[in-house]
Amino acid sequence: MTDADAWDPVQYLRFGDERARPFVDLLARVGSVDPGVVVDLGCGEGALTAGLAQRWPRARVTGIDSSAEMLAAAAVHAVPGRVDFVAGDVREWRPAGPVDVLVTNAVLHWVPGHEELLGRWAQQLAPGGWLALQVPGNHAAPTHRLLAELCTDERLAGAAPPPRPVLDPAGYLAVLEAAGLRAEAWETTYLHVLSGPDPALGWVRSTVLRPVLARLDDGEAAELTAAYAAALRLAYPPRADGTTVLPFRRVFAVGRRDG
């Protein structure tokens, strides 16, 4: 892993409040009262995972993530016997036993073919267990479309934003129902009011832009970033007060196993 390819918890948390809101809205639809085993797949820097232990004081909460940088940041939220963080790939994760609440937040858009994973995870729920997911649904937004248009170098073919990495709500509803869960799904478009220089660029630096820059040398990365920033300024112009509105669509689904 190169330095450019590594996750940067500080940059990611620059918009921590905005990134936390969908997690809160997702968990509001999870009706588990007193779970014993709670897992957060793709836990990132761990603050939201720790909040699960506050909601369910008697649960054992485990966060799983593949990023060493994110897990290092998450370590400050660990509580022996209550909250722990473990290195792992969500594609390969297997629980030691049935799970009461399984959460995956803003992760599955990085995992092609994740519908199969959801079906497998649903089978690993305890009776009465819950599966909750949230994914960005902004693949058609200028943030992604403009970057894809700039990724003309063949080295960037696998790093450019894919045209459709996630399903719509109806698609996730069908996947969870086919797995035997009682499910609901919905979407929300948040209007994030951002400030500072090039705020749209700042937003994507820790997400969709990160794997692209990882494949370029410093000069090439600077050139692409400058062109991308200029295009984003046109797509997301500042308002009279200097702030910029960034619409962000997200897709949610929750399912409960009978029991």
Results as ranks from 00 to 15, higher is better:
Val90Cys: 11
Asn138Val: 12
Arg145Phe: 05
Ala178Val: 05
Asp65Glu: 01
Thr62Asp: 12
Leu173Tyr: 15
Gly113Met: 02
Gly36Asn: 10
Asp84Tyr: 11
Ala214Glu: 07
Leu209Cys: 09
Glu115Tyr: 04
Val79Thr: 05
Asp217Ala: 10
Met1Thr: 08
Leu146Asn: 02
Pro162Ile: 02
Arg120Asp: 07
Glu223Asp: 06
Pro211Leu: 10
Pro238Ala: 13
Glu220Trp: 10
Gly158Gln: 05
Asp25Trp: 14
Gly202Ala: 04
Leu26Gln: 00
Leu176Pro: 11
Leu176Thr: 08
Gln123Asn: 01
Gly63Pro: 09
Pro142His: 00
Pro238Asn: 12
Pro57Thr: 04
Ala75Leu: 12
Leu147Cys: 00
Gly88Trp: 05
Arg205Thr: 13
Arg55Met: 06
Arg249Gln: 11
Gly46Lys: 12
Val37Asn: 05
Ala227Thr: 14
Leu146Thr: 05
Val107Pro: 11
Arg29Lys: 12
Pro95Asp: 07
His114Gln: 00
Ala122His: 08
Ala214Met: 03
Gly137Phe: 04
Gly219Ser: 04
Arg94Ile: 01
Gly259Ser: 02
Glu184Ile: 06
Phe15Glu: 14
Gly128Ala: 00
Pro95Asn: 11
Ala214Leu: 02
Val37Met: 05
Leu27Gln: 13
Ala59Thr: 07
Asp241Val: 00
Ala141Cys: 06
Gly242His: 15
Gln124Ile: 08
Cys151Ala: 08
Gln134Ile: 07
Val212Trp: 11
Arg239Ser: 00
Ala222Asp: 09
Ala235Cys: 03
Trp110Arg: 09
Ala157Tyr: 09
Pro211Arg: 11
Val254Gln: 02
Pro142Tyr: 02
Trp56Ile: 06
Phe23Ala: 15
Ala78Tyr: 08
Asp34Asn: 06
Val38Glu: 04
Glu45Arg: 08
Ala157Trp: 11
Leu201Tyr: 14
Ala59Asp: 06
Gly171Tyr: 11
Ala230Phe: 11
Ala214Ile: 05
Leu224Phe: 14
Ala222Trp: 02
Tyr236Arg: 05
Gln134Arg: 04
His109Arg: 01
Gly113Pro: 04
Glu18His: 02
Ala221Arg: 01
Ala221Met: 00
Val37Asp: 01
Pro22Gln: 04
Thr207Gly: 06
Ala20Ser: 03
Thr104Val: 15
Leu52His: 03
Ala170Asn: 11
Val61Tyr: 00
Thr143Tyr: 03
Arg120Ala: 08
Ser67Ala: 01
Glu116Ala: 15
